[in-house]
Design a protein around this nucleic acid. Structure first.
Lengths: 349, 349
DNA sequence: ATGAAAGCGCTAACAT
DNA sequence: ATGTTAGCGCTTTCAT
């Protein structure tokens, strides 16, 4: 099936319609200021020939690609263990599609990949980048900034000393954590523990901060470090049970962690929520609804985060190319957005 | 801050190195037949200027894009409920990256998206396509074939009347299912049930066939239809328990389904595997290792499937290029591959 | 081994 | 309102 069908060019369409290339170009790109009769004729020729513009030729002169890169750093394979990534991608895809942009996916697995990504972005193949900067001290964000490509980050980037002009979309991790812990406290619990996420990610650090906001003088032994995985949750829960047998509530950094904790609790014979209340974070349906008991958790709208990232980036790109067309009163640089979270009550707390 | 950094061109590099554009081009593309001294000079100029080739200009003349599209149809959001998709994507990404190809991700959600995808592929933006055709009677595959883009499918496409020249990569679903059921039989179980996947997907149909291969005269009441989800697994397991209280083994179409079945079994007070053995399919680690008890299951190497798809496609693309001419039937067309599965024993069977 | 020159298919001034 | 023309940056014969 590798037949090299000779694709018709603008020239061919022009010839068939009996007009100039310029006219065809105008029609193809919206058809402003071309007589209806001609528009009609050109459209017909386009259809008959099955003409599709050559994007390479177009990009060469417009310097737009209508394509954006999505960069996902996944040093750990953890990204793939929960559907977080896929959901966000879906939101991004929807928004980009709605604006006729393509999504170029760049998955990185290590140092050398960073260089590759940097080169690609600097190479001007895409108009902008959406970057998931999951870890502190990740060199990737710096690299990308240096590439000079308009960028929006997913999650607050974890670099030291906030740069100016960095745009990101994040959930209100700290606020959500506070809500969770307050809910637990409202239930009359007093020995409220926290199982953290991987603390080299800002989301985990922020949730821990939220916990501390409420538990101002928390017993440090009530904090156990984990890594967003069920296995980590199990380990941490055992530690907690060991160190503080009187613990009566746990706020886990995410649903997966909570599910691990629940398993340990069940094994140890504690009843949830009677003996100990458990609350998660994410509201990842396949997890939160399937645990036993179903998980009370802090919901973040992951797909919306993705959509918003794309929207912000496209807006910024439009700023650069504002013709008299879209009638947008431009001027302000898009700034970061922090999305609210909501507490979802189920049976575990 | 959309600074339009003036990117250096071939011309600029040539001037700096004191050679012609042609020479620079040669060096940039491998440097065959250029004196070492010159190669050196050009390399230096490239570095100093930070030159990166303009891909649009290059594509315009070479007609290669070094980019392939990955098309994922996801009428249901199920695709995102398990990490299947992400794993496959990772395999694809690795292979493409190793061959300096970019990955353009096309997610579709409905009819109108199909047209969009068709247009994109026909538009010659990419050199080939990797397509996940999950459902029977999906119009997408047809559309894509018509676009005339070299394509490899993920999973056996479910269209009626197999076309010639269709290349796909799949797991040996039928064989794996047979292994699973035989294992159960080998355990001495006689009332072996099957909870199917969504039967409009070839993988589910094939696994059912594999079950029937072994259970030739199976009591039809031992087959319960589900949809690859935990909820579906729960529902089906209840049916089964209801219809055939003497059931002593269950082969579930995937791990997620099995996890739902396990939950129902636990509620109903049956012990696994003592009273009833359970076996899944996929070996999705986060699921299979976390169930209670851990799941015996049929492993398929999902990442490898992705890698293989990419490899097959790239090979086919190379075939087309290597002989420069048009219409020559060279070498052998890559043909479909069915990967073996392996039984992974854990505690549930 | 290297250079000169002709496009690839398109858009965007500039003319008309 | 439409046509003419000059490139965009690169690869690739074809000379040398």
């Amino acid at each position: 099936m590798t037949d090299t069908a000779p694709r018709p060019t603008l020239e061919a369409v022009a010839a068939r319609a009996g007009v100039s290339r310029a006219t065809v170009s105008r029609v193809v790109n919206g058809g402003d200021g071309v007589r209806d009769a001609l528009v009609e004729r050109v459209r017909k020729a386009v259809d008959e020939l099955g003409y599709v513009p050559n994007q390479a030729a177009r990009s060469l002169v417009t310097r737009r690609h209508d394509a954006i890169a999505v960069v996902v750093a996944e040093p750990e394979t953890r990204v793939f263990a929960d559907p977080f990534f896929a959901l966000q991608l879906r939101g991004i895809s929807k928004e980009l599609t709605a604006h006729d942009n393509q999504l170029v996916l760049l998955l990185t697995e290590g140092r050398d990949d960073h260089a590759r990504v940097g080169r690609y972005l600097a190479g001007g193949h895409v108009d902008g980048a959406l970057v998931f900067s999951l870890h502190l001290h990740d060199p990737l964000p710096e690299l990308i900034q240096r590439a000079g490509v308009p960028t929006v980050f997913g999650g607050r980037p974890g670099w030291s000393g906030d740069r100016q002009g960095v745009v990101y979309v994040d959930s209100d991790n700290r606020g959500g954590a506070r809500d969770a812990v307050r809910h637990l406290a409202g239930l009359g619990r007093t020995r409220i523990a926290h199982i953290t996420g991987a603390l080299d990610q800002t989301s985990a650090a922020d949730r821990l901060d939220g916990y501390r906001d409420v538990m101002v003088d928390a017993d440090p032994r009530l904090i156990a470090e984990a890594d967003f995985t069920p296995a980590g949750g199990e380990r941490a829960m055992r530690e907690l049970l060991d160190r503080c047998p009187d613990v009566d509530a746990v706020f886990a950094a995410n649903d997966l962690t909570a599910s691990g904790a629940l398993r340990v609790l069940r094994e140890s014979g504690r009843r949830v929520p009677d003996d100990i209340a458990v609350i998660g974070f994410d509201d990842m349906l396949p997890v939160a609804e399937q645990t036993d008991p179903p998980l009370t958790t802090v919901r973040q709208d992951i797909e919306e985060m993705g959509r918003l990232m794309a929207r912000l980036l496209l807006r910024e790109l439009d700023r650069g190319t504002s013709h008299g067309g879209s009638g947008e009163a431009t001027g302000d640089t898009p700034s970061s957005v922090v999305l609210p979270t909501t507490l979802v009550r189920r049976a575990s707390a």
